[in-house]
Design a binder for these strands. Structure first.
Lengths: 136, 136
DNA sequence: GAGTGGCAGTCTCAAAAAGAGACCAGCACT
DNA sequence: AGTGCTGGTCTCTTTTTGAGACTGCCACTC
């Protein structure tokens, strides 16, 4: 309310964009945000931003994802145009996933949030601890 | 792979941060990203970034949220330290929700993603349409 | 003084999404 | 012939979300 006021141009406009003027169905921003919002989507985007990976590699990289969710999330990401899926006809056919230009572009913006998270996760953790303590 | 290569400092490091070196439980970034990832969290953050709101106002502003989810999401946001909840002892006691400094700070980073979404949602929509068409 | 409506929720139950893990076919190596 | 790798699908259970009824309090109206 006093310290660091963030310079946002027309937050109200932003909000209008998300609320879609009463019609939520064709709200573009929300649609995109949903795309990042899956439990595993950000994680996989981050991994693929580093370099392309194969299905099995991703599975090993993110050990606590189920195969079902990995398949599903990669499919969704591909559908949204963030990820490219390429099948190589080797003897056991291997499949490589990589970011598309759109995916890289999106990750560029998303990256801001990641950097913020790295800097401020202690603050969040502390807030949570305080809150839980005050509720007890 | 060729066009606009995004300048990311050490994506691998970023990934290591999220994967937590094998231990996902204390992965700070993922924890924060989860905080943004709820279906309604981003929406409410956007609304509150504009100005403080009362419970009923938010409900009218986002008509397709259920009361249960509104209560829940505001509670979570408060717990994470993004939102401040203040009860005014008026005759029907009113409750005002506003962003904290931490919340505004986070929203600043999140805003990048919103801007990207505004610019690129047609591309995502198009990709999705193409993909669905090619599957048919 | 009974009804109506706004306030900020809680409670219950149904539907949707996520997670765990078994199972599949094909090939290579031992 | 058995083991392990490839990239998945299928089924079942648990968790999360959603819809909507219900609460208690007060003010205003009739």
């Amino acid at each position: 309310m006093d310290g660091k006021v963030i310079n946002l141009k027309s937050k109200l406009e932003v909000y209008k964009a998300i609320s879609g003027g009463g019609n939520i169905a064709n709200c573009p921003v929300r649609e995109v945000i949903q795309g990042v919002s899956g439990k595993w989507r950000s994680l996989l985007m981050m991994a693929l931003a580093e370099k392309p990976y194969r299905f099995g590699e991703l599975r090993r990289l993110v050990p606590d994802i189920s195969q079902r969710m990995l398949t599903q999330t990669l499919y969704d990401l591909q559908r949204d145009g963030y990820v490219h899926r390429e099948v190589f006809p080797t003897k056991p056919p291997s499949v490589e996933y990589s970011l598309t230009d759109l995916g890289r572009s999106m990750f560029g913006a998303f990256h801001q949030l990641i950097l913020w998270a790295e800097l401020n996760h202690d603050a969040v953790r502390a807030a949570r601890a305080d809150f839980d303590a005050s509720q007890a």
